[in-house]
Design a protein around this nucleic acid. Structure first.
Ligand SMILES: [Mn+2]
Ligand SMILES: [Mn+2]
Ligand SMILES: [Zn+2]
Ligand SMILES: [Zn+2]
Lengths: 136, 136
DNA sequence: TAGTTGTTTATAATTATTCTAAAGAAGATT
DNA sequence: AATCTTCTTTAGAATAATTATAAACAACTA
């Protein structure tokens, strides 16, 4: 159970005022035990369902992007027409169930260390991500 | 140097009639030494530049999708608003230069074998892809 | 409380992609 | 080669995710 105070802190850290709408967004995003993988549309609908209050799509986009920028959300690379986000901001990899269009966390120890044996002059590695696509 | 006959064969294999437009598309796609990573828009512009003839965007989309379906092109997972394709259809990984928005092939031996130590009941692995993002 | 600054929202704009349907080209049949 | 059928091309419309706009509104500050 995450407290309202923590939401307000996260919002303040992201240079956002703690409004009713944003607290509702936080309620859906952060008040959970397990990692939450979602699209903006998922989130938009869940806010209505879980809090009974509607938040405009623009506010959902804006707030998610602010949290992403601050590092409270991770953006996931998927071959799809939609952008996914993840409340698990640690470095980790994913399964992607192509049929269900669902992401599943893969712990780093489930993949093992990945050594990139090649470098590009003038560039440094920002991230190394593995995506494992699943089929039936 | 790839011959016109090979283009026609690829088209026929993809259940496409060898039209002037499609041959032009093949010219840009397959008449090259090195791997070609592109977006539909890249390709659309290159056709005009290289052949002097314009092909409609719809035809570019349709032809690329037919080649992708047939396995003559690979679709690349990138966190971006655009879909990338690759003339290298073998299993391989990528660098993505975030600033330049360019893909670079990573040979499998540059990454090493990846063992996924976890399975999901009822699902099997379709692909394992590594994306290494580069920054300056 | 009043003033300032930041926020929400409906709606419009943008952009990549797909769809549509009419005109044209390719392949088959004579 | 002329004709017929089927597939293709194309401009433009439709769709869908995302971003921008700007007026009404709420949070914060003095
Ligand atoms: Mn973002
Ligand atoms: Mn495709
Ligand atoms: Zn995750
Ligand atoms: Zn490649």
């Amino acid at each position: 159970m995450t407290s309202r105070q923590e939401f307000i802190e996260k919002l303040r850290n992201s240079s956002l005022r703690p409004t009713k709408q944003r607290i509702n967004i936080c309620e859906v995003l952060f008040n959970r035990d397990k990692t939450f993988h979602f699209t903006i549309n998922d989130l938009f609908n869940l806010i209505k369902d879980k809090t009974g209050e509607k938040v405009s799509l623009a506010t959902v986009y804006n707030t998610v992007h602010a949290f992403h920028k601050k590092g409270y959300l991770k953006e996931i690379t998927i071959n799809s027409n939609q952008t996914y986000f993840d409340t698990n901001v640690t470095d980790h990899h994913h399964f992607f169930d192509v049929k269900e269009e669902k992401l599943i966390d893969l712990k780093n120890e489930d993949v093992g260390p990945i050594e990139i044996q090649r470098s590009i002059p003038g560039k440094k590695i920002k991230s190394v991500e593995v995506l494992v696509k699943l089929e039936d």
